[in-house]
Design a protein around this nucleic acid. Structure first.
Length: 276
DNA sequence: ACCTCCCTGGCC
DNA sequence: GGCCAGGGAGGT
């Protein structure tokens, strides 16, 4: 599932392909994919014939900066992936958007469940969009422990829910939030405000190593293979997961059976033996 | 601060 | 044939 490591793996793969390239043509096969565009026709019109200047990422959002102050935003949702493919190659099912590069390959947005989207923003629109409300990036701009402690202060919501709140820290999703809490040995059910400063430090110290490990593996491709790298390879972090998807299996740290609870509608995996 | 909805393939 | 996966937006 695309969270920060998957989006960043995708971004790193695409960067040399996209930066400097000129977009020649855009085909939107499913209008729903550009639902964030106020006027759907703007999407193709704003991308067309523009060069890509830079490829950035904030949290789970990928941002291509184009000539003329246009920002082409991609969110992979939960089943989206970007492919680099030559125009002659047969399209995979659920190829919902195709962006052609001049004298280059196509960027194909494959997304069966269509929770992902693409949108082309002007600077004013970008300012008004939900990206403006994103918190600091969990990998590149992680707040220091005192600031993190301040964010959690007096919060009664479970720490797991707060880690998923993109307005606080941007980039963690369900898999890596569970993995971070396991590494920090903190129960996902603990109210955010109940963490001691030492626990906040432990939590903070767990975030980047988990994300970097996921990134080094090319992300997490689950057995459904919904997420794949742009060249079709699977990310290898699945085998390294300590709690996510391991309900009933044995915690490698303490031997206790991993449990799952539903928290805010999200399945949360944790070890009741060593996460306190 | 919480709940509901969106969407589809895969699995029981 | 029904349920599950879940990020983000919108509503109460």
């Amino acid at each position: 599932m695309p969270e920060l490591p998957e989006v960043e793996s995708t971004r790193r793969y695409l960067e040399p392909v996209l930066v400097g390239a000129r977009i020649s043509n855009v085909e939107v096969r499913r209008d729903r994919m550009v639902r964030r565009q106020e006027n759907p026709a703007d999407f193709g019109a704003r991308l067309g014939d523009r060069r890509v200047l830079a490829l950035e990422r904030i949290g789970k959002f990928m941002l291509a900066r184009l000539e003329g102050d246009i920002t082409w935003v991609t969110h992979l949702g939960m089943s989206g992936r970007l492919q680099v493919a030559d125009s002659g190659r047969a399209e995979d099912p659920h190829t919902n958007v195709v962006v052609e590069l001049k004298n280059g390959p196509q960027i194909r947005f494959v997304d069966p469940r269509t929770f992902g989207f693409m949108v082309a923003y002007t600077p004013a629109e970008l300012e008004q969009s939900s990206l403006a409300g994103l918190g600091r990036d969990a990998l590149d701009d992680l707040p220091r422990s005192p600031e993190l402690a301040q964010m959690l202060e007096r919060r009664s919501a479970p720490i797991k829910a707060l880690l998923l709140d993109q307005r606080l820290i941007a980039g963690l999703g369900n898999i890596y939030a569970d993995e971070v809490l396991h590494r920090a040995a903190i129960s996902p059910l603990r109210p955010g405000g109940s963490l001691s400063l030492d626990e906040v430090k432990s939590l903070r110290a767990s975030i980047r190593p988990i994300l970097r490990a996921g990134l080094a593996a090319g992300g997490t491709s689950l057995n459904d293979l919904a997420y794949l790298l742009p060249d079709g390879r699977a990310g290898g972090y699945l085998a390294r997961l300590e709690v996510y998807g391991r309900t009933g299996e044995i915690c490698r740290r303490c031997g206790t059976s991993i449990e799952a609870v539903v928290l805010r509608g999200r399945t949360t995996h944790w070890c009741p033996g060593c996460q306190l």
